[in-house]
Design a protein around this nucleic acid. Structure first.
Lengths: 191, 191
DNA sequence: CATCTAATTAGATAGTGATCTAACTAATAA
DNA sequence: TTATTAGTTAGATCACTATCTAATTAGATG
């Protein structure tokens, strides 16, 4: 039941302060102090609101030294905005079909213990599996190469190949051997 | 500032009971008792929620004998759903242009005291004026012809012509000399 | 290490809101 | 007219939440 997530999304937007925060972030990322200043509110209040916005998933954050910058996840935001009217006016058809296909592929290549048997060679299936594998990584967090390797090894010993696939298909980018998740809109897609 | 209406819309959807009510109404109109029964709630609770849904404008009602049937205003619902992401990601351009044109036409044909000087002959302008005139009528309410005449006369003595325009352009329909507002999606449009 | 800055946590306050029961109004039906 | 049925209003209760101050944590810098 994702009814709860939907309710939560709307509850989150049902507050004037949070809407104002979103209008600020729509023009570009900002850090907490800046938001507090522009809205005339104290820091803890901003923390409070950002927690809610982050929990619903429409905002994520990146840390730079001591400062945390907040970003809107535009794609997720849009999809949530449309979710309710879609739910009311098109009673589940292709969507279910799609998620069933995804589920089938995952079942075929991921064992019961969660490890990967082998990477599919067919592109569509490979993308599905890569998406599955990357779920455990945190948006906005910077991973040293060693840490990425350790993470991938939980699924499969050949971390080098899979790590390369992450880069090739734009799930992550690398700079000075530091890895970071790309925003979802950059990821390779099936269609 | 329509920020408030937006906040209110989301606040209204930020409650599981109201979402459940909307899913019920999405398949067709229902009356209060039916909703209460299906959700296992008492009548006053339904009244409470319907008041909020009606106030935001996404639900309207029609009375039949003793019973009140509730309907989703799908068009308004969809437009509200999209409103916030539009506001964040396209900083007002054509919209303003459009509303300025409308405002200009209204200024040209409606005097300072609110009365209509004369009905425009040009179709686009006529539609704008008819929309303006009809604003004071209540959705779902049934008006005897006499009452409609009285209403129109507040704007212009030639009620017969204007009443006919309402019908021709599908702003209202008539049955046994009882008039009722049509849903907005039936109204004649400019484009 | 000592200090500074940004953010979070804890706890208090005041306001809002979802639900109920009981009492009331409105309109039909007998 | 009286009874019945649907809906609304009033008021109580309980839970949640937006905001603040004060205290605390976490990094970064001198």
């Amino acid at each position: 039941m994702q009814l709860n997530r939907l309710v939560n999304f709307h509850k989150t937007l049902g507050d004037p302060t949070r809407i104002r925060i979103l209008t600020l972030l729509a023009t570009g990322p900002l850090h907490g102090q800046a938001i507090a200043g522009k809205l005339g509110l104290k820091a803890p209040t901003i923390t409070h609101h950002m927690t809610k916005l982050r929990d619903t998933g429409i905002v994520y954050q990146r840390r730079d030294k001591n400062t945390i910058y907040y970003y809107i996840d535009e794609k997720k935001f849009r999809s949530y905005s449309e979710a309710l009217s879609n739910m009311l006016y098109q009673p589940e058809h292709d969507k279910e079909d799609d998620s069933m296909k995804t589920q089938a592929v995952v079942n075929n290549f991921i064992a019961k213990d969660g490890t990967l048997t082998h990477l599919p060679s067919q592109r569509k299936k490979k993308i599905i599996i890569l998406k599955h594998l990357i779920k455990g990584l945190e948006r906005g967090k910077k991973y040293p190469e060693k840490e990425i390797n350790e993470y991938i090894k939980k699924f499969h010993p050949d971390f080098a190949t899979i790590r390369r696939e992450f880069i090739i298909n734009h799930f992550m980018y690398r700079e000075n051997n530091i890895y970071e998740l790309n925003p979802e809109e950059m990821w390779a897609t099936i269609d």
